[in-house]
Design a protein around this nucleic acid. Structure first.
Lengths: 347, 347
DNA sequence: CTGAAAGCGCTTACAG
DNA sequence: CTGAAAGCGCTTACAG
């Protein structure tokens, strides 16, 4: 202790000098090795039950907690995963994070969160962060350009809601295509033929799939057509602007298919401002099933994406990859939630 | 390297064997000490500029990143703070986290997030988490019982939106009392006299203040009264149920003062279901100014709590405490956002 | 201006 | 069944 501790303490008295495994060993009258064995539960048949109990008692009395930095250094693994999401203030990504953290905790792995600051755009290098002693990365719904940065870390990478063959060790996706097929089918069956697609202004797999499937499904029905608005930023205001424009055209669409619930909420506002009733004059659909989807009136017909399950499955996939297993792409089912914002078009 | 590395690698080939400072030293033809000095920017006057440049070049070429576990172990500090919030899927706490992470990053400190799984209730011991090499804790809006657990870690603790003298090293609060005074004043000035308080079912400082101030302000006006509903769980459904009950009574209140925007959104729904118009028949106010506040119609009159600023100020306070500074309680200003959900009561 | 050495706290192969 | 020792990668006081 020639310097390190002293140097660490100089800035203030705030460093609680925690007991070390040596302190526990001393108190229990055993060696540090025995302490480690007992506390890591690797003692069966190697340490007598009496001594094991003595160690546990000493640890308890001292309030001993292993120093994770030391353990990490020794073990060469951090038992920590990085979760990268475009924006944490979006409820969907908060759910993804919650699911990932839950699955990680079940395996005694910690999670460090990295919300890409520029929204869904390119993330600056997360690996320079102070918490960057990482075993692997789970990243959700990133824009295409962001992948390169993530791969650069050289860490095992699991992508969520992303291009299936994007170079990640594993991919877990909600069944986006099925979701959009459910929306299109629902509206077509109600009798809609003039659609507007309120599309998000993010260039990522998930939104490309939504656009592609909607176009296909509508094209398959004679007389049906879909116009695509200028791409909208993913917030209420973006939806309001894009939907206003879509509703202003000559052949007014009878259904607004929105890439996200936030856009759909904006579309609801746009319709109301033009004096149109939802769903009587125009139907509106969303994607995600955020809390907001049932907060508004009418409540939104939308696709429920399993955010928590996505995060949990992604973390489990990462853990499996770290164990050396080889994984491909997992697809999670989605559901259509039919609510008050959709109805047959006015005759 | 008798065992450690080998043991670490056995589970799979996934551990990228990263270059160490020794590798950089070798490549640059200097000692490890020089590498450390240069890379930590402590070389001025101690290492010749030419060698410093050589070290930087070598580090760049090898893609060297310091092993944080080793640095942490040596330094005795983790440069990592724990942020504890009741629930991350609540947008307000997501904002708090974002602000805290931003402030931490500015000081090159990492953030580990701990969303108390049981909502706003008692958090189980966060310090057993695998990422628990921590310098300090910032905790927001915790229920009273949760404080004990947090103090137990023995780490410097900054509380946000909490009891000012609750034993934390520092406290940073939005001016909750002023916020509720703004709401009450606004409604009283509009002419309201019969209030219902849709109160949250969480026993914490922030909600006690809201209840206390509302009661006081209303009591100060002759003829004005406030009834308190059964406490509601903080979500749309909770608000809907509590508000339904409040509106069913004999002397129907003309204003529903809600502890949270989610409750207020529920109240909006309750009013609508009873065939009451907002704000013509009944006024509704919220607290927080979530995205949802402007998503609904009419948009909510609410108190804007500065979530990001709260998180950032809290983290800066923790950093100051870690530097040995003594801090008291900081109060952040709040604002009333007047929108469409409030109006004079029907005559 | 530079390097050799010690030590942070832990875990494990090895020797008893 | 138990302990002494080495070493993970880094930083810094110290000796040159």
């Amino acid at each position: 202790m020639s310097d390190g501790r002293a140097a660490g303490q100089r800035p203030g008295e705030w460093i609680p000098s925690r007991p070390t495994s040596r302190d526990v060993a001393e108190r229990a009258g055993v060696s540090q090795a025995t302490v480690s064995l007992v506390l890591r539960d690797r003692w069966a048949g190697r340490v007598s039950p009496a001594r094991a109990e003595a160690v546990r008692a000493a640890a308890r009395e001292l309030g001993y907690r292993p120093n994770l930095a030391a353990r990490t250094l020794r073990l060469g693994r951090a038992r920590t995963a990085l979760v990268v999401v475009p924006a944490l203030t979006n409820e969907f990504f908060a759910r993804v994070h919650a699911g990932a953290a839950r699955a990680a905790a079940a395996d005694d792995v910690g999670v460090v969160l990295y919300p890409s600051p520029e929204g869904v755009g390119t993330a600056p290098d997360p690996f320079t962060s102070a918490s960057a002693t990482l075993d692997g990365v789970v990243a959700s719904s990133m824009a295409t350009e962001a992948l390169a940065v993530l791969s650069e870390g050289g860490l095992p990478l699991v992508m969520l809601d992303s291009e299936p063959d994007g170079g990640a060790a594993a991919t877990v996706n909600p069944d986006i295509a099925a979701g959009m097929r459910l929306v299109a089918g629902h509206l077509l069956r109600l009798g809609h033929r003039r659609f507007a697609h309120i599309a998000a202004d993010v260039d990522s797999w998930t939104f490309r799939v939504r656009a592609g499937v909607l176009a296909e499904e509508v094209a398959a029905v004679p007389g049906a057509e879909v116009v695509v608005t200028e791409r909208a930023s993913i917030d209420v205001r973006g939806g309001l602007l894009a939907a206003s424009r879509a509703l202003a055209g000559p052949a007014r669409p009878t259904a607004l298919v929105c890439d996200d619930d936030l856009l759909a909420v904006g579309a609801l506002k746009a319709a109301r401002r033009r004096g149109l009733r939802v769903p009587d004059d125009v139907s509106v659909t969303g994607f995600d099933d955020l809390t907001m989807a049932t907060a508004v009136e009418p409540e939104l017909t939308t696709v429920r994406l399993p955010g928590e399950e996505l995060g949990a499955a992604g973390m489990r996939a990462l853990l499996a990859v770290l164990r050396g297993e080889v994984l491909g792409t997992t697809v999670l089912p989605v559901e259509l939630r039919q609510r008050g914002s959709t109805a047959p078009p006015a005759p």
